[in-house]
Write a protein that binds this DNA or RNA. Structure first.
Lengths: 257, 257
DNA sequence: GAGTGGTCTAGACCACCAC
DNA sequence: TGGTGGTCTAGACCACTCA
């Protein structure tokens, strides 16, 4: 490490002007190196990464510089600091919260505990729109999962999940049914695919012939349509999830700042 | 400043155990002091706060400690750093984005430019549910605003906005209509109320007799219902906004991480 | 050139955890 | 007791802005 600050670009990070030198500070370079390590599986989810001191020596920078890099990675939820123990690779597997990405709350503000039922899991050729979202070639294999979530006997969520076939070989109804905990934990430990970030497009739609019986609501009932595209390291999309939520006794909670 | 690190609590920040010492680090105390300054209007939105060096001298701590405090306040969008110029109090007034809190996008991903029409603005006694949300006593005065947003002639949003009457004396249809830019800018510059943070509850509902003609959709059309509670300094709620969004050619965008 | 924020360093000490 | 992250300091130098 220790590229002279005023020297060439090395490895930029976020967007910037084109012609300009665009050199990145040391801690950004360290951040890039650690991210690469995560991406390439040097340290697996749940494991500890080397101590700040060790990384500082390895990269030939001061401990404070490593610290700043790790600070930002922790802010991005890629790493988790634990005082006295070390810094760990974030994981969906050991999360207290059942559904980190599911923002549904009961009307009284409580977190509903959900019972899952898998309706279907099969390998098919990705439809055009799915292929586009997941950056597959049209005709590539994809895994399609359909499932419902229910709370207290009431169906609440109907999900259709699309995954790139080449990353999820051997995924079956059985594997899904046996698994306790969130799917993202399964994806991570069994297939090495970790979801980092997601974007959602939310709309209001009417229950149709398919969704109405499954969610046990009359045809035409307003439902929340949530289309989620999840990304792994390097902004690579690896899951498209289309959900329909009943919002008669629950709501989608969001925070703005 | 410079309360001995191991001494009493001084002024904690976020939740913590009860009995424990719960002493806060110096930079947290500085953060609290700066926040108090913002709250009490020592520096107004858009203005610069004193330089890091000056604050360090004032509070008798090192520049690095002030820096860390400001770092966090900037991360919370309370302050904005501008290299070479100074650190400024965040403001809604001079925002490039028209609607910082409105997450609607057109289907093609673009930001729709909105035309506003005020339907109504009057002082009334706060209904029970509004009073509860805004932490008013039942019977207290409140300002009720109803308005629509349209893009390309199409109505898109129907909002009902509730404000505490005692903070918004003299707010009228005229003041609202004359104002260019987001309401939050008006609230800030004319009434000294700055929105810091908001929580939204999102549901899917059917267009009723009131909303259907105003949004020009058939009765029963699914609409996004967005109930937003906005807070100012000290988590004090100061606005309740109930919106109905058409999502036939637009969607609500959210980011998860 | 003076002033501001931004980066980097080196070292001290504290709080937490495990052995 | 030793290792880890967390706080705090003091000082050097860089990059950006503006007069």
């Amino acid at each position: 490490m220790a590229i002279a600050p005023s020297s060439s670009a090395a490895s930029a990070d976020s967007g910037s002007a084109d012609v300009s030198p665009a050199f990145s500070p040391l801690y950004q370079q360290i951040k890039t190196l650690i991210t690469r390590g995560l991406q390439e599986g040097d340290w697996k989810p749940g494991e500890a990464i080397p101590s700040e001191m060790e990384l500082a020596q390895r990269y030939r920078v001061s401990q404070g510089t490593v610290r700043k890099a790790i600070d930002e990675l922790a802010a991005d939820n890629l790493l988790v600091r634990r005082q006295g123990k070390g810094t760990f690779v974030a994981t969906h597997a050991e999360e207290k919260i059942q559904f980190r990405f599911l923002r549904l709350k009961a009307d009284d503000g409580s977190d509903p505990r959900m019972d899952r039922s898998i309706l279907e899991c099969r390998r098919v050729r990705a439809p055009a729109d799915v292929a586009r979202a997941l950056e597959l070639r049209s005709g590539d294999a994809a895994v399609q999962i359909r499932r419902t979530l229910a709370t207290e006997g009431q169906p609440l969520v109907l999900d259709e999940i699309w995954l790139p076939g080449h990353l999820f070989r051997g995924l079956s109804v059985e594997r899904l049914s046996e698994w306790r905990g969130p799917f993202y934990g399964l994806f991570e430990t069994e297939f090495g695919v970790r979801m980092i970030r997601a974007e959602e497009k939310i709309r209001a739609v009417a229950a149709d012939e398919v969704s109405s019986p499954l969610l046990q609501v009359p045809l035409g009932t307003p439902l929340l349509s949530v289309e989620r595209l999840s990304m792994t390291y390097g902004e690579k999309p690896v899951e498209l999830r289309r959900g329909l939520y009943r919002t008669d006794s629950h709501f989608y909670r969001n925070e703005l700042s």
